[in-house]
Design a protein around this nucleic acid. Sequence first.
RNA 1: GGCGCGUUGGUCAAUCGGCUAAGACGCCUCCCUUUCACGGAGGAAUGACGGGUUCGACUCCCGUACGUGCUACCA
Length: 509
Amino acid sequence: MSNKVRVRFAPSPTGGLHLGGVRTVLYNYLFARHHGGEFVLRIEDTDQTRFVEGAEEYIYKCLEWCGLEPDESTKKGGPYAPYRQSERKHLYYQYAQQLVDKGYAYYAFDTPEELERRRSEMAKDGHAGTNFQYDATTRRQMRNSLSLSTAEVLELLDKNTPYVIRIKVPFGQTVTFTDMIRGEITFDTSLVDDKVLLKADGMPTYHLAVVVDDYLMKITHAFRGEEWLPSAPVHLLLWKYLGWEADMPQWAHLPLILKPDGNGKLSKRDGDRLGFPVFAMDWNDPKTGETTRGFKEIGFLPEAFVNMLAMLGWNPGKEQELFSLSELVQYFSIERVHKGGAKFDYEKAKWYNQQHIHHSSDEKLLPLVKPYIVAHAPAVDDTYLLKVIGLVKERCGLLPDFWEQGHFFFETPEIKELDAIKAKWDDNKRSFFNSWKENLSSVSDWEHTTIEQTFTDSLQQHGLKKGDIMLPLRIMLVGGKYGPGVFVIAEMIGKEETLKRIQNALSLL
RNA sequence: GGCGCGUUGGUCAAUCGGCUAAGACGCCUCCCUUUCACGGAGGAAUGACGGGUUCGACUCCCGUACGUGCUACCA
């Protein structure tokens, strides 16, 4: 019996992969790698009404982009295949039946309409906000194998009456477990309802499936969002009733990622509203045809995205903030995960990206940046692009910024700040540019130091200071007040283009 | 409503009873750069509230408030 760490990420393929989802994957992955364990991807597609075409494939793409690939999955296979719950459908019934046989669960014949009616009656009855709960206090009033006689039950079953199997949650017991992040957590079972385990269509609900599969797949540590905490007692009871208590994984309920303004769980809507991505990658909803922007497409580096996510709810207890994935693996510990939810801060997310861009080599950046440049300037030379990347990368927060910050290396820019030159323009300056152009034409080694030398020489002849001309020159070459050193830019774009841009600007003044 | 969970600057957060309460993002000032950015130096800004326990509480306990999650044949 090995006690190898095994964790799992178990998404339901119903849409875009949310920030919080990626962080759950990340913590699973980091924990597994840190302990030399295995990371499993299990697809929880037990709700056939929510099936979305392409969602599963999309999840794989996101994990691949993030560099968080599972050891076992529906794609990769593994010793506990299949990893898609819909393909494991046949497994669940026997466990549900086993629970019925032992008196821990029962058949219920109430139709969804009947249940709905009970709920609305309850709401009307002056108990606003109070919900009808199917539990020890009410199940005798319902139609199930506990309230009906054996003969009635048999007859209903015989007539193929649709039924569900519900767990029989005991009254007045205390259920306790230790969460790796939150410590001891206690529930009173009287407040827990008789959750459906097996649906009328024969599919298990999350509650049954998660314990059966975690057991069968020998999961040792189970991480999930805090929103699952209230249903933890059901899962605990199930582990116990199925006789697997000794093999139950250790639980950790992760804090939520909150919206930046106000409070509450971060949703796709918040991203749309506040103008930042929430999904890892672009998601095209096949039903609405709508596309939601992802971090990848907006110009994030996967390692920056992962670094930022890791720090949202966890910290290493030291001052370092920039980590590679392998460093995160090295330092990660679940105990250092924060208990409280964290508000997502897009500004800080961009800072992480800027830092990772800054610290990446030009060669590594080349293939990532190139598409953004080629979109505007199809014929780019890699060697030239490489130099540009080195020159502008520290002023880029997002990949598309490379074009914004370096477009003038590839095209003659529109002079947007002509007014800034005009303000202090005079004949002497014009005459300076005319004579400097002459000098420039005869420069044979077109190199920034030489260019600057002729510049200084011409300056002296006209009794001008460097400060008088630097800004006009920059605007002539760049179009605005930004960019790397002007003489380096002149060197890069070449003599002909430099002269052309000066002449062009002169004609506008 | 009930139950669970949470609460250190605007945001992410360190602190595991000794605090004159780190650091980062953002903001402001200055330096560097005769541009912008990077980088550097500063600055403003924090323990929800009330009770205990203790020589000493941000740290432990109890209440209160506030926030949030759940309360489906969804996950």
